[in-house]
Design a binder for these strands. Structure first.
Length: 297
DNA sequence: ACACAGGGTCAGC
DNA sequence: GCTGACCCTGTG
């Protein structure tokens, strides 16, 4: 991989396994905006960057080589061979063959654990545009300002203590509805170390899940999202409405809506890479409108 | 207009 | 285990 600094940008040459659209529009991340020029402006890790594709090159603007090495290399999971991963998954069956071909360039981000906890608590029984707005409002309310970019002030995702001490009144302004008390309670549980986000990384998958589910508003699906997108747990298999759709369509003998059984079946079929399989299939199902315009693929 | 669902979770049986 | 309610808001 050839990576060079060019002015205020870092350029990754020949990055055929890096497609900003597939990375950001697949539901793992909420703090991005698609610009008129097709690029993506992203706030993460107390920084703001702009990511775009130019031919086969990826251009990360507002980024130093030092930041790329220290932060974004890990964030974008650059150490993983996605070509090999897609090839491996495509051999499982025709659905994964289609999904991995469709979403070439998708990567699973390694994001901040606390940001994942709060973001996915907000995601419950919610819609992606509204989730994005709520996370933005929360960051503007009590996140650190990290400077202007493209004429707009940007705010980092707030710290644990900042979220834990939001007033009820301010929290209402974020418009997270019935999730407000969950956010407050969970932030306080993390602040008091009743649940230690940093130690979950050392726990076996099942234990890490149970630890996270002690938090308010965190059930099995949200716990899996936190572990998959925040802790790079490849076995984590979040079961949501879209997963229920494609599992019933392709992988279950008879219609089933029990999340526990669906999850068990997913791990049975996809093995220790279930999380990756889930992302490709979820994204493909959603983008192709499975269940709305008839069966996909 | 007004019902309906949206990357689920929780409380009550 | 299963069921219904849940704050909002864009959609048809």
């Amino acid at each position: 991989m050839d990576i060079i600094q060019q002015g205020n940008s870092v350029v990754i040459r020949n990055a055929v396994e890096f497609e900003p659209r597939h990375i950001f529009e697949n539901g793992q991340c909420f703090r991005w905006t698609r610009e008129d020029d097709g690029s993506y402006t992203v706030v993460a890790m107390k920084r703001v960057i702009n990511v775009r594709k130019d031919g086969d090159d990826v251009i990360i603007d507002n980024c130093s080589m030092a930041d790329f090495n220290d932060i974004w290399y890990s964030y974008f999971d650059m150490g993983r061979d996605y070509a090999a991963l897609r090839k491996e998954l495509s051999q499982i069956d025709s659905h994964l063959m289609a999904a991995t071909e469709f979403a070439q360039g998708l990567r699973i981000l390694r994001q901040d654990m606390f940001e994942m906890v709060i973001s996915f608590i907000i995601s419950a029984n919610n819609q992606i545009p509204r989730i994005k707005k709520s996370v933005d409002r929360l960051s503007e309310l009590c996140g650190e300002p990290i400077g202007e970019y493209r004429g707009q002030m940007r705010y980092a995702f707030p710290s644990v203590s900042a979220v834990a001490s939001i007033s009820e009144e301010n929290l209402a302004a974020i418009k997270v509805g019935f999730r407000a008390p969950y956010i407050l309670k969970s932030a306080n549980m993390i602040l008091s170390r009743e649940v230690d986000l940093e130690s979950t990384g050392n726990l076996p998958y099942e234990d890490a899940c149970n630890e996270l589910m002690k938090l308010a508003g965190v059930g099995p699906k949200v716990a899996d999202c936190i572990l998959l997108f925040g802790d790079a747990r490849e076995i984590a298999f979040p079961v949501d409405t879209w997963v229920i759709k494609f599992m019933n369509e392709y992988y279950l003998e008879q219609s089933d809506k029990n999340m526990k059984r669906i999850k068990k079946r997913g791990i049975e079929v996809f093995g220790d890479k279930a999380g990756f399989a889930q992302q490709y299939l979820f994204y493909h199902a959603r983008e192709s409108g499975l269940g709305k315009k008839g069966p996909a693929v």
